[in-house]
C-alpha cells in the first residue's frame, strides 16, 4: 500500500532498460516521484530523456524493469494484463502526441467510445457534448477526424480522455503539433480540468514556455530525475 493516501500516483525507484541491437539501453534510472490528486504535473526534459517511457509506465502501457508504480494505492506491477487494461479504460485517459483518434468515427463517436469502453452508464450524449464544448468543439461534433485540423483533433483526443471521468489523464506532448497560442489554450484547459473536475494530469513537454503552467514539474535528463519541484 502507498505510504501516503493523498498521493494518487507514486513512482518508486522506477528504472527501465530496453534491449536494443547495440546492447541494453537504460532509458530510466531509479525515478522517484509522488503526485498528489488534482494537480497538473509536467514531465520535462529533452528528446530522449525518458519522459515518454516514464509516462507509458505510469499509464500501465509498459512495465518497469525495476521499481514500481502505485496508482490509487494499487501496485500496478502486480496486476495482470487484463487488470491493467481495465485500469486503463476506467481510471486513465490518454492523449498522445500523434493523431490518436479512431479514423472511422467522428468526433462525437470517438468521445462516446471511451465511455462505452469504460462502461459508463446513463446519458452518454449529454456528457459527450459537454466534453466537446469544454474543448471548444461544440460545433464540430459530427466531423470526421480527417476533416479536422491537427489542433482540433488533439482537442477531441482530450475530450475523449476525460469523457468517461478518469481520475488520471496522461498526455504525451499534447502540444507538440500545435502552434503556441493553441498550446497555451490546451494547457489552460488542463489547468481548468484539474480545478473543475479534480483530475490528476501528467503531461510531458519539451516546451520551456509551458513549464510554469504546471503545479509540479519533474525534470528528466538521460533517464535520471534531476529535479522535482512541487507546488510551493
Amino acid at each position: 500500500m502507498g505510504e501516503n493516501a493523498n498521493y494518487i500516483i507514486e513512482i518508486q525507484n522506477v528504472g527501465r532498460t530496453f534491449n536494443t541491437a547495440s546492447g541494453p539501453f537504460q532509458a530510466l534510472k531509479s525515478v522517484n516521484a509522488s503526485i498528489p490528486e488534482g494537480v497538473l504535473t509536467i514531465l520535462k526534459g529533452r528528446s530522449g530523456s525518458g519522459k515518454t517511457t516514464l509516462l507509458n509506465i505510469v499509464g500501465a502501457l509498459d512495465q518497469p524493469t525495476t521499481g514500481r508504480v502505485i496508482i490509487e494505492g494499487q501496485d500496478v506491477s502486480r496486476l495482470n494484463d487484463y487488470q491493467r487494461e481495465t485500469l486503463r479504460r476506467k481510471k486513465i485517459g490518454f492523449v498522445f502526441q500523434s493523431v490518436s483518434l479512431i479514423p472511422t468515427m467522428n468526433a462525437f463517436q470517438n468521445v462516446e467510445f471511451s465511455m462505452r469502453m469504460a462502461g459508463v452508464k446513463g446519458d452518454h450524449k449529454k456528457r459527450v457534448e459537454e466534453c466537446l464544448k469544454m474543448v471548444g468543439l461544440g460545433s464540430r461534433m459530427h466531423h470526421m477526424p480527417s476533416e479536422m485540423s491537427g489542433g482540433e483533433q488533439q482537442r477531441v483526443a482530450i475530450a475523449r480522455a476525460i469523457a468517461h471521468g478518469p481520475s488520471i489523464i496522461l498526455a504525451d506532448e499534447p502540444t507538440a503539433e500545435l502552434d503556441s497560442a493553441m498550446a497555451a489554450e490546451v494547457t489552460k484547459l488542463f489547468q481548468e480540468m484539474t480545478k473543475k473536475e479534480h483530475i490528476t494530469i501528467v503531461m510531458t513537454t519539451h516546451d520551456v514556455g509551458l513549464m510554469d503552467a504546471g503545479d509540479m514539474v519533474i525534470e528528466l535528463e538521460n533517464g535520471v530525475q534531476i529535479s522535482q519541484n512541487a507546488e510551493a
Binding site: G59, L61, D81, Y82, E85, T86, L87, R88, R89, K90, I92, F94, F96, S100, L101, I102, P103, T104, F113, S114, M117, A118
Partner: peptide, 13 residues
C-alpha cells in the same frame, strides 16, 4: 496504429 490506440484506451486482446 488504430489497434494500438484501442489497446491504449484499455481494450482487451
Amino acid at each position: 496504429m488504430v489497434f494500438g490506440v484501442l489497446r491504449a484506451c484499455g481494450m482487451h486482446k
